[in-house]
Simulated scan of single mutants.
Amino acid sequence: MNHAAGALTFLWLGMVLAISFLEAPLKFRAPDVTIPIGLGIGRLVFRALNLAEAALGVAVLVLAIGGGSGAVLGFATGALVVLLAQVALIRPTLNRRSDRVLAGEDLPRSPAHFCYVGAEGVKVLVLLGLGISALV
């Protein structure tokens, strides 16, 4: 059971790294991608990513409850708590800001953006711990 949890965890980790640390910053460097277009794409991509993360997180948590170690259960819970904080606490602020930008306001980068990136960094570390503990 732990091997399945490990495999799902590393899938989850790969998705976070690919989207949050590659796709998100690079899309704004692509030719002809304006801030409004990038924000619109980002909202769709992160909504889909967060849904996939929730599904993977619940699956890993179920596997951990069904026979994983205490470390696996703890890391899985931690990763889901970080995800919940991102979705419930940080993303609404970012969505309100992006609504204003899409309406034509010129705004500086939001501190909530840095909070989200910081939470992604924490989640990456927790997922690494989860994946390693599931496979050891």
Rank of each mutant, 00 (worst) to 15 (best):
residue 3 H to T: 15
residue 4 A to R: 13
residue 4 A to Y: 12
residue 6 G to M: 05
residue 6 G to F: 03
residue 7 A to K: 08
residue 8 L to V: 12
residue 9 T to P: 05
residue 9 T to C: 15
residue 9 T to Q: 06
residue 11 L to F: 14
residue 13 L to C: 12
residue 13 L to K: 04
residue 14 G to F: 12
residue 14 G to H: 13
residue 15 M to Y: 07
residue 15 M to T: 05
residue 16 V to M: 11
residue 17 L to W: 14
residue 18 A to N: 08
residue 19 I to P: 01
residue 19 I to S: 02
residue 21 F to I: 00
residue 25 P to N: 06
residue 25 P to L: 10
residue 26 L to N: 11
residue 28 F to W: 08
residue 28 F to E: 08
residue 29 R to F: 11
residue 29 R to M: 13
residue 31 P to V: 09
residue 31 P to W: 13
residue 33 V to I: 15
residue 34 T to A: 03
residue 34 T to N: 07
residue 36 P to K: 06
residue 37 I to T: 13
residue 38 G to W: 05
residue 39 L to Y: 02
residue 39 L to D: 02
residue 41 I to T: 10
residue 42 G to K: 04
residue 42 G to P: 06
residue 43 R to M: 08
residue 44 L to G: 14
residue 46 F to T: 01
residue 46 F to V: 06
residue 47 R to H: 13
residue 50 N to Y: 15
residue 50 N to R: 09
residue 51 L to D: 07
residue 55 A to D: 07
residue 62 V to G: 08
residue 63 L to T: 02
residue 65 I to M: 15
residue 65 I to F: 15
residue 67 G to L: 07
residue 67 G to I: 06
residue 68 G to D: 05
residue 69 S to W: 03
residue 72 V to H: 01
residue 74 G to S: 08
residue 74 G to K: 03
residue 75 F to L: 07
residue 76 A to G: 04
residue 77 T to H: 05
residue 79 A to R: 02
residue 80 L to I: 15
residue 80 L to S: 10
residue 81 V to Y: 05
residue 82 V to E: 02
residue 84 L to S: 13
residue 85 A to C: 04
residue 86 Q to P: 00
residue 87 V to C: 04
residue 87 V to Q: 10
residue 87 V to W: 09
residue 88 A to S: 11
residue 89 L to Y: 08
residue 90 I to P: 02
residue 91 R to A: 12
residue 93 T to M: 06
residue 93 T to L: 12
residue 95 N to P: 00
residue 98 S to V: 04
residue 99 D to C: 09
residue 99 D to M: 07
residue 99 D to V: 08
residue 100 R to L: 14
residue 100 R to M: 12
residue 101 V to D: 05
residue 102 L to Y: 00
residue 102 L to D: 12
residue 103 A to Q: 12
residue 103 A to R: 11
residue 104 G to A: 07
residue 107 L to Y: 11
residue 107 L to R: 09
residue 108 P to K: 10
residue 109 R to P: 05
residue 109 R to F: 00
residue 110 S to V: 09
residue 111 P to K: 02
residue 113 H to E: 08
residue 114 F to P: 00
residue 115 C to T: 11
residue 116 Y to T: 00
residue 116 Y to N: 00
residue 117 V to C: 06
residue 118 G to H: 14
residue 118 G to K: 14
residue 121 G to E: 07
residue 122 V to R: 04
residue 123 K to Q: 15
residue 124 V to E: 05
residue 124 V to C: 14
residue 125 L to W: 04
residue 125 L to C: 14
residue 130 L to G: 01
residue 130 L to N: 01
residue 130 L to Q: 02
residue 132 I to M: 07
residue 132 I to E: 01
residue 133 S to G: 06
residue 134 A to V: 04
residue 135 L to I: 15
residue 136 V to D: 10
